[in-house]
Design a protein around this nucleic acid. Structure first.
Length: 431
RNA sequence: GGAACGGUGGCAGAGCGGCCUAAUGCACUUGUCUUGAAAACAAGAGGGUUAAUAGCCCCGAAGGUUCAAAUCCUUUCCGUUCCGCCA
């Protein structure tokens, strides 16, 4: 959520920043918010004045009662009662207006960073680095999609996954399952130098899913467990961001650096029929997420660091990759600035998004109420949050199957994963 | 799942309709004293909203009763203990 006060102090700035997202509706929402906020402040002032009166009268009633001056007390109670009645009317209007304002504010997206590139959609995301490791040409053996080769190798069994759970679920078997787990372990180990490993809950409350910006807007994309009023997390970003929700952190504790492996659940409403083959898109997948809660002034450097960490993993896995920056027209609602890492998969002949690293400024932290206190200063400030996928398993798994496929049909395990593969150096066809 | 008891300031803990603008202790900050520290004494100290050092709001949360709620009522969340069940 953006700061309501910005609507009062820098309305033009808000308008022009949001205009860059290229969605005219947003400006209408801003107007709505301004009107509601103005009204809210008016009637709040009125109510507070009334309350002050009632509080004062009540205090006098108490004093008169003690002095046994019951007649005088009665008279004051009468006045106080009248004030209370008017207050109740105002209060109900305040509740209505406040609620409406909250609903509008929750749906107004974050302001893009001044340096974020302008653009209308994903076709305008500039490539900021790469391609790296991209060979001049690929062999025919690499030009086979992983859903064919992996199935033949016996490491992918989506047919049975579908039997068990329905469309868009995947199942890895044998060394394929080991490879998926190896990728998680590798990503965690590579970041353990600076991040605390957390194993968070996979189900969260409505409040938690709202804090990161996934609700109310994206309710259809999340799995809801209605009986228990819980949601399945679409990413570990959700529980990790709220880990310190409602807390005031000490400046000295910042930045908080957390990482987590978690399963991720997405209904993929609206993308049914797209990328349904292989490992490109599924209702459930594994991911290692890295996240930081920081002072605003430290956020830019952390953003660079997180991107660098995600990039380093792709380089270590010997995969061809590039980094793109997300333009204003393609940027997620909570994002302030955002970079994606894409890996090239020669079998699919596509650049696959394998990591997304974002800076949320104070947008999520305000929703989650994550504040910090500067040493020696009064008051608190809203923190900044940043996060990124260190490694999202399925697409990296697919890219390994395609890029590292050998002429004999086997898949070479990248050297960095060998410690996790129980001695296997290649995944070979069953005899 | 059943039962009992709890959730108050950084911590401990009192208050159980009106001098609660929340006692007291510990911890904390500043000052006096001291070469410095300790001790003692004195003062101070939370968060939110607001232009405001005014007012208003915050005693787990949300409703309600009342002229007045930390205090009474309802709902709810969380915790502890016991029972049941269980990887």
């Amino acid at each position: 959520m953006i700061d309501v006060r910005l609507l009062r102090t820098n309305l033009d700035g808000v308008r022009s920043a949001l205009a860059r997202r290229g969605k005219p509706d947003l400006l209408v929402q801003v107007d709505e918010a301004v009107a509601l906020d103005t009204r809210l402040r008016e009637i709040s002032l009125e109510r507070d004045t009334l309350r002050a009166e009632v509080n004062d009268l009540s205090k006098q009633v108490g004093a008169l009662r003690r002095d046994k001056k019951n007649d005088e007390a009665e008279a004051l109670m009468e006045r106080s009662r009248a004030g209370g009645d008017r207050e109740r009317v105002l209060q109900s209007e305040i509740d209505t207006v406040q609620d409406a304002l909250q609903q509008v504010m929750l749906r107004i997206p974050n302001l893009p960073h001044p340096d974020a590139p302008d653009g209308a959609g994903d076709h305008e995301n500039p490539i900021v680095k790469g391609p790296i490791n991209l060979p001049a040409s690929f062999g025919d053996h690499q030009r086979v999609p992983h859903w064919e080769t992996a199935t033949a190798l016996g490491i992918l069994d989506n047919e049975r996954a579908t039997k068990i759970a329905g469309a868009m679920f995947t199942m890895q078997r044998g060394l394929g399952a080991t490879l998926a787990r190896a990728l998680c372990q590798f990503a965690l180990d590579q970041n353990a130098d600076a991040f605390e490993e957390v194993r968070p809950p996979s189900f969260v409350t409505t409040a938690t899913l709202t804090a990161t910006g996934h609700l109310p807007k994206f309710a259809d994309d999340a799995y809801a467990i209605e009986r228990d009023d819980l949601w399945a997390i679409p990413t570990a970003e959700v529980p990790l961001t709220s880990l310190h929700a409602g807390e005031v952190l000490d400046e000295a504790e910042l930045p908080v650096r957390l990482m987590a492996y978690s399963p991720c659940y997405r209904r993929e409403a609206g993308s049914a029929g797209r990328d349904t083959r292989g490992m490109l898109r599924a209702h459930e997948f594994d991911k290692v997420e890295i996240l930081a809660i920081a002072r605003p002034e430290d956020a830019p450097a952390l953003l660079t660091e997180l991107v660098g960490r995600a990039e380093a993993l792709m380089a270590a896995l010997e995969l061809p990759y590039r980094i793109i920056e997300i333009c204003t027209g393609d940027m997620g609602g909570s994002h302030h600035r955002s970079f994606d890492i894409e890996v090239y998969a020669p079998g699919c002949d596509a650049w696959l998004e394998v990591s997304s690293v974002s800076w949320f400024s104070d947008y999520q932290a305000r929703r989650a109420d994550i504040r910090f206190k500067r040493t020696g200063q009064k008051g608190t400030e809203i923190a900044n949050t940043l996060n990124g996928s260190a490694l999202a398993v399925p697409r990296v798994w697919a890219a390994i199957c395609e890029n590292h496929r050998q002429p004999d049909g086997s898949v070479r395990i990248p050297a960095v994963l060998l410690p996790y593969m129980r001695g296997a150096t290649h995944i070979t066809p069953k005899a």
